[in-house]
Each structure stands twice: as C-alpha cells, then as structure tokens.
Nucleic acid binder design. Structure first.
Lengths: 211, 211
DNA sequence: TAGATTGTTAATCGATTAACAATC
DNA sequence: TAGATTGTTAATCGATTAACAATC
C-alpha cells in the first residue's frame, strides 16, 4: 500500500498524527472524525483526509476513523514496526543527553552502540551501553550492521566518519552537525536538527510578533 | 524594510542562508552570485533571489552579492542584533545539554537563568549560571524580564508554567515538550523541536530509500 | 561598451481547500 | 431510511521556477 512520490509536507505531518492519535487512544477515545481531529490539531478536515488517502482508505463513511487502527496504520507507514539498529557518534553533552532522553524503541529504532574518540569517555556506561572508541567502529559495524547513526560531532569531523559509515552499510542519519550530509552523499536518508536555526527563527518570530 | 506576510517557507531558509554566508565569509569569499550560492546550497538561483527580494534588494546587477553585507542583512532580518533574554526551564539531561551546547549569543539571545523544580539540582552551576528553584520564577521574571524560554520539561508540566511565564511577559518559546503551545496560547512565538518526530521521519525515509 | 547578474514579472507547478457523490 | 462522514474530484491558492528587461 506504499506509494512512491508522497510529498515531504505529508510525511512531516505523519508523526504528529501518530502522536495525537496516541493521546486520543490513551484518553479512551475509540473513534474520531477528520473534522474533530482537524479541530484538535489545528488543521482542516480536508487536509487530513487528503493526507491519509495518499496511503489508503483507513476510514469508514458515516463513522470516521478507528483511533487505534489509524494509529497503527500510520505507524506502519512510518516503518516503526520494523526495528532498525542505530548508533550514536559523539558522546559529549548533546550525544549523552540524546541517548538518555530519547525513546528510540517507540520510533522504529533500537540503540545498539555509542562511540566517542575521547579516551576518557570510553568505557563509560550510558543506558546500559558502554561507550566504545570510534576506532572500533569498523569492527563493530561489520559485526552488528547498524542501519542508522545519530551524529553529535562537530562539522569538521563529519565527512570522514559519514563516508566510513556509509561504506559500512549505514543508510540513515540523524544529523545534529552543520555539515550538509544530504548535499554530499547520495542515496542515504538524512534528518537534520539544527538548534541554532530554530533559535534564529524564534528570534525572527519574536521580532515580528505584533505585526 | 521589514514587511509583513513573509511565508514560513522563506523564514525557514533564512538561518541556512545565514550559516552558508558565514562559511563563505570565513573562507575569505567576498562576493557571491545567486547562481553560485544556489549550487552550493542545493537550491535554485531564482528561489534565492525571490527570497531575498522579500526584504529588499541586497545585490548589485552584474556583480552579485557582497557576502559580508548580505550575511549582516539577513542577521538583521532575523533580529540577531537585538539581544533577547532567555531562560531554560527544566535542567534534566536535555536542558543541561542544551544549556552547555547551544551558543545563544550568536543567535540573538542572552541566557540569563536556569530553573528546575528538583531541589537536588538547585544551586548547581551550569555555564556560570546557578540553577534556581522553579518557585522563584515569579520573582526572577519581575526583576529580569526574560523575553523567551526554552522548555525542557514533560508535557504535563508545560501548561501551568507557560501560562505563568506568558503572564510575566515571556513571549517566545523553544519547546521540546509534546504540549502544543501554539495551539493553546495566542500571540506568542513558538518553535517546536520534537526529536521523536524527526526519528520517525528518518524511519520513513530509510524504509522508502530505494523506491 | 559588452558581459554578467540582479530585481521582477509571468508561467508553472504543487499543496491546500472546497465541494459533493458514494456509502456506511 | 436519514444522517454523518468518508474518499475523491475540482477549484483555489500560493510557492517555485523560468524568463527577461534593467543596470551595474
């Protein structure tokens, strides 16, 4: 039921649908119409129906959508059921916090390794996983075949490591660095998180609040 | 030169322009054409010229753009020169990492306070700022008038604190929680960062890589 | 001046919204 | 059956791209 050519705008909304449906489920709401969901999410009913119908007809005329089933379907579309192995490169402040804070399991990933080049960090245990030296990446990947990597390393360090990881079969990156992976490698999946950009956008929005 | 009604798509690209221009500057490149910048950023020259001309004519026909001047102009548009006071609420793993990792100064903000309700964290110093008890928020805000807040607290805790902060004059939020601030308060600026959503998008992209 | 590249208008493309027949 | 709400087509709106006259 997976069709190619879904717009990035639709994809971006899927996790949010997933979250809201989870909340509805948790609140014991078994059934939801596109109109009601739209109201709760600040969207239009049309948009929700269009988005969902990119992937199939999950509703029932006259009734609406079954909350649990729709949530599960969106989970399937996102590939959350198919667990992918992920590692974290760079266990400084940020890498450590991401490791501790993010629930990878709920989002389609299983965290299997942590790496840092700083010898003083190697051996430390975070979330029951020992930090390994980055120079063991090769061996580790050949044995464990991670599918994705979280990059919490400075811009300068990214190119060689990414190049290496891609050769070792890693095909997805959650990228916190300012190195533009998507621009420099083909055929890989990249999500960028740039706090600085978000802060600057916030600055703009505050500046233009009452206009 | 600030015009209302700039599309969110344009705003979103501004910080990225700002970063790329910074890199060019640092590399000693004094002059750049929309065509060359487009190539480096993976955009079209048309789009860059359209984006910039939302705010004014920063280029010169036959020449292109002066790297430093364009960067500064974009900085002005983003309001980076006008320093706003920001505080962090919630100094767990994430709040601490954000505090240590992000350079607020470069992005239009000055970090002036850290808060947590956990007594065991109160008094700890992070980046030369002591963590205060959240119950001192009122007093602190009345004295220091923060403009914005980074929210690193769980969903359930957000509503009362946000409501409180807004009453105390805070008008911008960098929101890491899953509470939908923008939906529940009006006239404030909000930027959401949801790692989970990004991970799910990454999951989708990996799943659909070779289609 | 000739060449280059902008600023800007026009054309195209795609996303969102509206409308409504199908149907539960 | 009558009412509700989907799935889907059509209309609108806006973003991106292309084209080109202005001009440095």
């Amino acid at each position: 039921m997976q069709i190619k050519g879904i717009s990035a705008y639709v994809i971006k909304r899927l996790p949010r649908y997933y979250r809201f449906l989870g909340d509805l489920s948790a609140a014991g709401i078994k059934r939801i119409s596109s109109g009601e969901l739209a109201k709760r999410m600040g969207l239009t009913a049309s948009q929700i129906r269009q988005d969902l119908n990119c992937f199939g007809g999950f509703g029932q005329q006259g009734y609406g959508y079954n909350t649990d089933i729709l949530r599960e379907e969106i989970g399937n579309i996102l590939g959350i059921n198919n667990t992918k192995k992920i590692i974290v490169i760079g266990m400084g402040n940020l890498g450590k916090a991401i490791t501790q804070h993010v629930n990878f399991n709920d989002k389609g990933f299983s965290l299997i390794g942590l790496f840092d080049e700083k010898e003083s960090l190697v051996g430390n245990i975070v979330r029951n996983i020992p930090i390994r030296n980055t120079n063991q990446l090769d061996e580790f990947c050949k044995e464990n075949h991670p599918d994705a990597a979280v990059l919490c390393i400075p811009k300068e360090a990214v190119y060689p490591i990414a190049e290496h990881l891609i050769r070792l079969g890693v095909k997805g990156f959650l990228n916190f660095s300012h190195y533009d992976l998507a621009l420099n490698f083909e055929g890989i999946a990249v999500e960028n998180i740039h706090f600085g950009d978000d802060l600057m956008k916030l600055s703009y929005k505050i500046k233009n609040l009452d206009k």
